[in-house]
């Protein structure tokens, strides 16, 4: 199984390192050609405006086939969302894959960035959540399942073959969420 990591900008090297620990082949993706043969894709944290522009200009957004499993963290989650609210640059391109509404930088600026434990739906042990200028899931449809919450807020959600996370599991040495993506979301059961 080859897992692609979108390597435009941001924490792609960190994702690559976690994925390598899970014994999958990892490929950095910067062009539509590099997307060929990939059976799942990770969109890392970074600046969603920058990554979104790049997806648009390189035709990468269009090259992502329907049904390709995708895991987006932070900026990656913003790109997966169908709707965005709050301060937003005009014309920011979204992949529009998940029925979630996301508010960018909802917790404030960098001085409000924080670490907090997160409760996973499938595992009792708390997960170390690293929230950096994090987005908030403001709304989600009934087709979306919530896999982790912090307080009342959904912070890890799944809809079919898409997984989106408001925080940064790639900045920790805890691989449980990546493992979940590989073993539960991306596995080919057809």
């Amino acid at each position: 199984m080859i897992v692609g990591v979108l390597a435009v900008q941001g924490s792609f090297a960190e994702h690559m390192q976690v994925l390598r620990g899970l014994a999958v082949d990892v490929r950095l993706v910067r062009s539509p050609e590099e997307l060929r043969g990939v059976s799942a894709l990770v969109i890392p944290g970074g600046e969603s405006t920058t990554i979104g522009d790049f997806l648009d200009k390189q035709g990468l957004g269009d090259a992502i086939e329907a049904g390709l499993p995708i895991f987006g963290t932070c900026a990656g989650m913003i790109l997966l969302a169908k709707k965005m609210v709050g301060k937003q640059k005009e014309g920011q391109s979204l992949l529009k894959k998940m029925d979630i509404t996301v508010e960018r930088n909802a917790y404030g600026r960098q001085t409000e960035s924080f670490e907090a434990d997160v409760k996973l739906a499938w595992d009792a042990r708390p997960f170390p959540g690293v929230f950096i200028r994090a987005p908030r899931i403001a709304e989600y449809s009934e087709d979306v399942s919530v896999l982790a919450r912090r307080g009342d807020a959904a912070v890890l959600v799944r809809q079919g073959r898409y997984l989106a996370c408001a925080f940064h599991p790639e900045l920790t040495d805890d691989d449980r969420i990546h493992r979940y993506f590989i073993e539960e979301v991306a596995k080919n059961d057809s």
Binding site: V8, Q9, G10, F12, E47, F114, E115, I132, R133
Partner: peptide, 21 residues
């Protein structure tokens, strides 16, 4: 409990800027 200004959070923003200008 949430903790702001931790080393991981401070370094983390820089990690999000990697590959950029």
């Amino acid at each position: 409990m949430e903790e702001t200004g931790t080393p991981r959070v401070k370094k983390g923003l820089a990690q999000m800027l990697k590959g950029g200008v």
